[in-house]
Amino acid sequence: MTNERFEAPTPLHPFKKAIVIGAGRGIGEAIARKLTREGYLVGVVSQNFDNAKKVSNQINTDAGEILSLAYTHDVKNFDEVDGLLKQVMDDLGGLDLLVYNAGILLPTTLTTYQFENDRTMMEVNVTGAMAWINAVAPIFQDLKRGQIVGISSVAGDRGRVKNPAYTASKGAFSTYLEAIRNRLSRHGVNVLTVKPGFVQTDMTKNQTGLFWLITPEKAAEDIWKAIKSKKQTIYTPFQWRYLMLVIQHIPSFIFRRLSF
C-alpha cells in the first residue's frame, strides 16, 4: 500500500465510508464512482490490483481529493478477510456500507460438467460473500447502523439448464442475504439484494440474445437510489421484476424443456 491517506472528515466536510468488493471494473467500478460522488470514501477492492489502482486513481483525479484507495484481494482467500477489513476500516476511519459485487460466470455447455469451474463460481459468488458478511455483520450489529449490499442476479431466481452452478450460486446468495436481512434488520442494519439483468460488462461481452441491456452506470444509479431509500430487494432495470415473476411461475414440465 502507498502512503496515501483518505481525506479526513470534519464537521463541515463529512464523509460516509464504504468498501466495494469487486470494484476493479463493471458494476462494482460504477458503484464505487457513484458513491464517491455522493459523499463516500471508498475502499476499492479487486483481485487485480492494477484494475483497483486504475479505478481509484481516476476517481481521485476527477475529484481532486483522495476519496478512494485501492486494495488487492482474491475473495477466494477467505482467511484474508478479517485482516483486510481491519485495515480498510482503519484507513477509512469506520464503515457505513459494504457492497459485495465480486461475481464470476464461467461458460459451460449443455452437456459439460466441470467441478472445478462450479466450485470457483460458488467460492467467488457465495462463500466469499459469507466471509465478508460474517466479518462485517457483528460490527454493524453492535453499532446498530450500517448497510450491506449484495449484487446477486436475476439468474438466481430459477435453476436454469445453461449454467447450473452460476444460477445456484446466485440463488444461494439471494437466500443468504434474505436471512442476514432478517437477522440484522432488528438491529437497525439494512440489507439490500440487487438483482441485475443484462449489464454491459465483461461478463456479458460474448453472450448473445441480450435484451434490456443497460450500462454499469445505469445499474449503479439504480443501486444508489435503493441504498439511499434503504430498499430490501431491487431488480435493475426494474422491468426484470415482472419478467422474473412470470418466469418463477412457469411450471417445471415446461421450464425443463426450455433451453434458457
Binding site: P11, P14, G94, I139, D142, L143, R145
Partner: peptide, 16 residues
C-alpha cells in the same frame, strides 16, 4: 472486539 460509536463535544462528528 466490539465497536462502539463515539462522538465529539457538539455532536458534529462520530466514529466507531
Amino acid at each position: 472486539q466490539t465497536f462502539q460509536t463515539l462522538e465529539n463535544f457538539g455532536h458534529s462528528l462520530s466514529a466507531p
